[in-house]
């Protein structure tokens, strides 16, 4: 029933022959062009270009704080670009008004970095909420669907619990169950496996792959877990200093000579990526402190 509601208008109009299914596979569903964004005069994104194609799993990598979540927030239309455009299903997100944006958003599922569960509702209600609000399904059917989604992430028993009673990893899994409640066409995952044990990480990776193969779901995954990235990615992009510094298939990324990417995937402490982002030199900073302290003590 939900799939009927959520069926994209384009896909029904394409005649089902081989060439078109080939074309469908390469169809761009999200296109980000020249995206720039500053927060209080601090430039974070300095011209991001990337595409997400239908049915693929795109992995976005990059160091902590480089703006991965910010890119995701532009794709779902909760942040407005300073420069550049974000197109989703061929529509410029900025030009869509609330209704248009909402009908696009109903085709998305989003797993937030923090889980972002509604803390005043039980786990079951969290997963049921999109179904109650956006479909006409009866309560019994919604209950069944909630159980199914929670079973997928292995948390069926958690249904009556409140989010405050869950561990961080459990919250993330409930967040995933909520993200897929409406059987979305595109799922955004913001660090889906960070803070999870290796077994659950494996389960989540398998889920992402199952969604792709079984239901043709497009996935955009932000992660710095390289093992999991190589397991799920069809294509990978690497962000650094507000730009895309590399993109390609997992093979290409694994074998690249690009020093920034090499340092990142090998996890080496030395390389082109500095650990500290401070502009002032460490020693000058410390010496300045010592001088000031002396001046205060001896009343100079």
């Amino acid at each position: 029933m939900t799939t009927e509601v959520l069926q994209p208008p384009e896909s029904t109009s394409i005649p089902p022959d081989e060439t078109s299914s080939q074309k469908e596979l390469n169809e761009v569903v999200i296109r980000v062009e020249g995206l720039e964004k500053s927060f209080s005069d601090r430039p974070i994104l300095k011209g991001i270009n990337l595409e997400v194609r239908k049915g693929e799993t795109l992995v976005i990598m990059g160091g902590s704080g480089c703006g991965k979540s910010t890119v995701l927030r532009h794709m779902i239309g909760v942040l407005e670009p300073d420069q550049g455009t974000v197109e989703v299903f061929g529509q410029d997100v900025q030009e869509l008004h609330e209704d248009g944006l909402n009908s696009v958003r109903k085709r998305f599922g989003i797993l937030f970095q923090s889980g972002a569960l509604f803390n005043s509702m039980t786990v079951g209600d969290n997963v049921a909420l999109p179904l109650r609000e956006h479909t006409d399904l009866s309560d019994e059917i919604i209950n069944i669907m909630v159980k199914m989604k929670l079973e997928l992430v292995g948390l069926r028993e958690a249904e009556p619990l409140m989010p405050a009673q869950l561990s961080g990893g459990m919250k993330k899994r409930v967040g995933l169950a909520r993200a897929i409640a409406l059987d979305p066409e595109i799922v955004f995952y913001d660090e889906p496996t960070t803070g999870l044990d290796p077994i659950v990480t494996g389960v989540i990776d398998k889920l992402i792959n199952d969604f792709k193969h079984g239901m043709g779901i497009t996935s955009v995954v932000v992660t710095h877990d390289m093992n999991s990235a190589f397991r799920i990615a069809d294509r990978m992009v690497m962000l650094y200093d507000g730009r895309v510094v590399a993109q390609g298939t997992p093979e290409q990324i694994r074998n690249t000579d690009e020093p920034i990417v090499r340092q990142f995937i090998d996890g080496k402490p030395d390389g082109p990526i500095p650990l500290r982002l401070s502009k002032v030199d460490y020693e000058t900073d410390l010496i300045g402190l010592i001088r000031r302290e002396k001046a205060e003590r001896y009343g100079e």
Partner: peptide
Amino acid sequence: GTMVVSEEVVALEAGALN
């Protein structure tokens, strides 16, 4: 305010809920 800080409000918006 707590809902804003814990990203719940963004999650609502992103879930097409005003």
